[in-house]
Design a binder for these strands. Structure first.
Lengths: 281, 281
DNA sequence: GAGTGGTCTAGACCACTGT
DNA sequence: CAGTGGTCTAGACCACTCC
């Protein structure tokens, strides 16, 4: 209805959001600094308050800014990403052979490598559940067969914010030979699993990690204290023995803004006298 | 000090969004089926149009529904996730020793395993760029040293939608012994890298994948044709030789709703006579 | 053409942040 | 206290889908 710059046909929200995003990417708006207030945006782009809000919402959904009541939105400061390496799988296996006191010491310390034990509250919950279709297929058992379900969570004692979370399933029949496995008071951290399997004569030989990501639900965003626009990384770890039999399936969530998953793949060397196409080497 | 705002005082948008989300999770709203129209939401929850819109926007941001003009929003149908396995690293290394015609056949076929070559247009772009601080640190060279930058993209010929994308960096000095490496017309797909390295006497022995996720920007959402609420998975692959020298750094993006990354970790066996804590086995 | 969601405006009240 | 963003309402126009 009013003077149209006739520049483009893109919605005004998108134009504003893109303009600001470019300023952020160029460093003209440094992380931590404040964005223009809604009133200023209204004036600069000559639009209504709600359109300015729309632009802010787009940037929030892209994870670029944080906004709260009473103060101007700020360019998000990206937290350091904690590295979780697949080398941990081998470390945990090695640890399983160690005497109990060493397992307790290293195991707990390793559970969350970048935070002191004092600053997290650890809880676990064991239960027995019937196998869903999905798990039955993975384990190669009948649907409905009893699985041992073990859930672990670490939270910040002060803020009650979730720091780590995982749930593990394994066929109960595999571990029923050692009743201690069923008691969550024995080695109540995920790292103790391989030792407990050792007690029933099971050795994990292959670990497969399946990784993907999705947006959190409202409740997930709450318990993890996730800002807008931060995905959850979902990782399913499938452990098998030498015969290829699936022993354990472990599901874990990781907040993408604080997590980097690292996977190390050693390659087999080429045969000693391999072809050297151009005469090199 | 109540970390849960509970439903009592929660904004209407959130209450509506949660109610609908629960219906989706319970299966009362099947994937593909239509949600109530905005007018119906207004009436059922006795709120205004814009509040109903707000609820719809929340569900879109969580990736649960898709909405478009002219028809009611529908529960999102999750596409099948294409599996990209780390076993591919070894396959590519093996392939590098094969004769040229076999490389061409298998290499291209492998580039995108789940789609015929006829249904994707492949393009590559090679250039030489100075090393940023970040890359200089990774490669252990001086900032500003010349890197060979190679970018690959596959798009759908019909829709122009991006199907895959990656960019690779390596110190130019490492490969300058073979000028053919600099020509994008030679083996113009990522899988050919290890063969080209073979021609200059370099053998990759370790691959490290670093994985995280983030929300796409507006343009990224466009080129990938990403619906709202779908994260991008970001994967950096660092390839090193036997001496631990970093040879290549490859960055790739994957749409999280269509991608599952798979990493296989073989474990070293326990020593033959390991302790058997409880006398088993 | 009727119905729908996408965008936009104008204006109101509330919760929270600063001074 | 003033300023700010979060939420909400009422109403308008437009683009698109379906009949």
């Amino acid at each position: 209805m009013e003077p149209r710059p006739t520049a483009v046909r893109a919605p005004i929200q998108l134009r504003i959001a893109d303009d600001i995003r470019i300023q952020i990417e160029r460093g003209e708006l440094a992380p931590g600094s404040s964005l223009p207030t809604l009133a200023e945006i209204c004036e600069q782009w000559s639009c209504s308050m709600n359109s300015a809000r729309g632009a802010i919402n787009i940037l929030k959904a892209q994870g670029l800014i944080t906004a709260g009541r009473g103060k101007a939105p700020t360019v998000r400061i990206q937290p350091r990403r904690v590295i979780r390496s697949s080398e941990r799988h081998q470390l945990e296996k090695d640890l399983a052979l160690k005497p109990e006191e060493e397992r307790a010491r290293l195991g707990e310390a390793e559970t969350n490598m970048n935070m002191s034990i004092d600053h997290q509250r650890f809880s676990s919950h064991y239960s027995q559940v019937p196998a869903t279709e999905e798990f039955a297929t993975i384990f190669g058992v009948e649907p409905g067969e009893t699985l041992l379900r073990r859930e672990w969570e670490a939270t910040d004692p002060k803020t009650h914010v979730r720091l780590s979370w995982s749930v593990s399933h394994m066929p109960l029949a595999l571990v029923s030979g050692n009743p201690a496995v069923l008691d969550e008071r024995n080695e109540p951290w995920p790292g103790g699993t391989l030792h407990q399997l050792l007690t029933v004569g099971i050795e994990i030989m292959t670990v497969v990690d399946e990784v993907t990501a999705r947006m959190p639900t409202t409740v997930e965003a709450q318990v993890w204290d996730l800002p807008d626009g931060v995905p959850l990384i979902f990782c399913r770890r499938i452990s098998s023995d030498a015969a290829g039999r699936v022993i354990e399936v472990s599901d874990a969530d990781y907040p993408a803004d604080r997590t980097q998953l690292k996977f190390v793949t050693p390659l087999k060397p080429w045969p000693e006298h391999h072809p050297t196409p151009m005469g090199h080497n």
